[in-house]
Amino acid sequence: MASPLISPPLISLRGITKVYGEGPNAFQALKGVDLEIARGDFIAIMGASGSGKSTTMNILGCLDVPSGGEYLFHGHHVETLDRDQRALLRRKYFGFVFQGFNLLARTSALENVELPLVYRGDSRAERRDAAMEALDKVGLKDWWDHTPGELSGGQQQRVAIARAIVTRPEVLLADEPTGNLDSARSREIMELLTEFNAGGITVLMVTHEPDMAEFARTVVHFRDGLIERIDSNGHGERVAG
């Protein structure tokens, strides 16, 4: 499917391994993962529980480092970066959405969305404008002053998505973003992800539900720490330039 005319892959994993623990307790969660991700792709990662999906996502998002193998981002080795360098990379290129929303409690939706901009050093006014725009994109403009406790699960996840995209990241990583939501709410989330993907953001998503995987362009199946197979959903017409 990948055409040689399109620029080199945004991300390439080569022989990535991950071992948790040491000595007799050591557990190999990834046994050599090879994966190329093109810019603008929408990838769903599926597989049984414990097959290494989250481990892969964490490595892709530079939250964790592999035990072996190479990770090239924009052609640069990032598996050798230190803790703070990876933090700066995340700040600039990645947005995260989690199963459990992970919003700051007792903090307004607006302040939650502003949070990543604080670390970028944006001014108050810039932060406010950008955060309101992001909230508008997820349809929660009127809810900006509500705290997570005052929002439904679906709304909280939309705030989390607004927080993830407010910095205009290149890659959006979502680990089971609909895991805690009913199917109607899940569809809303998937529609948002599809929309942002159409806007040029590369989306990587872990899901258990085939219905949700339907929204992706590419589906990667994991099994026992290895990629079992890669399917294409065949709606390639959605590829953005």
């Binding site: 803790r83 990645f94 700051l104 990543p116 670390y119 927080r163």
Partner: peptide, 16 residues
């Protein structure tokens, strides 16, 4: 701890 995790994921460096 979770709040700190969120801040780190979002890209806060240790010093911050």
């Amino acid at each position: 701890t979770r709040e700190i995790g969120i801040r780190l994921a979002i890209g806060a460096v240790s010093r911050e």
